[in-house]
Simulated assay, not measured.
Amino acid sequence: MTKSAVILFNLGGPDSLDAVKPFLFNLFNDKAIIGAPQPIRWLLAKYISGKRAPIARDIYGQLGGKSPLLEQTEDQAKALQDLLGKDFKVIVAMRYWHPFAAQALAEAKQWGAQRVILLPLYPQFSTTTSGSSLKQWHQLAGASFEESLTVCCYPVQPGLIRAMAENLRREWDKAIAFGTPRLLFSAHGLPQSIIDKGDPYQLQVEQTAKAVVDELGIAQLDWAICYQSRVGPAKWIGPSTEAELERASRDNVPVVVTPVAFVSEHSETLVELDIEYRHVAEKLGIPAYFRAPAVSSHPEFIKGLAELVADPTALRGKACGKICCQAEGI
Score class of each variant (00 low, 15 high):
58 D>T: 11
144 S>Q: 10
176 I>Y: 12
178 F>W: 11
85 G>P: 10
220 Q>R: 14
21 K>V: 03
124 Q>A: 12
306 A>K: 12
167 N>G: 15
5 A>C: 13
36 A>V: 08
274 D>W: 01
123 P>S: 06
123 P>A: 08
275 I>N: 09
82 D>H: 10
327 A>C: 05
232 G>D: 01
77 A>K: 00
160 L>W: 03
284 L>K: 11
155 P>I: 09
29 N>I: 04
208 T>Y: 00
316 R>V: 02
209 A>S: 10
282 E>Y: 04
31 K>V: 05
280 V>I: 13
116 V>Y: 02
73 T>Q: 00
39 P>C: 07
181 P>W: 04
45 A>F: 10
70 L>C: 00
33 I>E: 00
297 S>T: 15
167 N>S: 02
174 K>Y: 05
88 F>W: 11
140 L>W: 06
149 L>I: 05
103 Q>T: 15
193 S>H: 00
14 P>E: 00
293 P>Q: 01
243 A>D: 13
1 M>D: 15
259 P>F: 10
211 A>N: 08
297 S>R: 14
176 I>S: 14
204 Q>H: 10
196 D>L: 02
278 R>Q: 14
318 K>T: 15
321 G>H: 14
86 K>Y: 06
296 S>N: 15
254 P>R: 08
293 P>T: 10
80 L>K: 04
291 R>T: 09
242 E>N: 01
315 L>A: 12
94 M>D: 00
257 V>I: 12
199 D>A: 07
324 C>T: 06
218 I>Q: 11
233 P>V: 00
304 G>A: 12
233 P>L: 01
184 L>M: 09
160 L>I: 10
299 P>W: 13
106 A>D: 14
45 A>K: 05
4 S>N: 15
285 G>I: 11
36 A>R: 05
19 A>I: 01
287 P>V: 07
315 L>N: 12
133 S>I: 04
78 K>F: 08
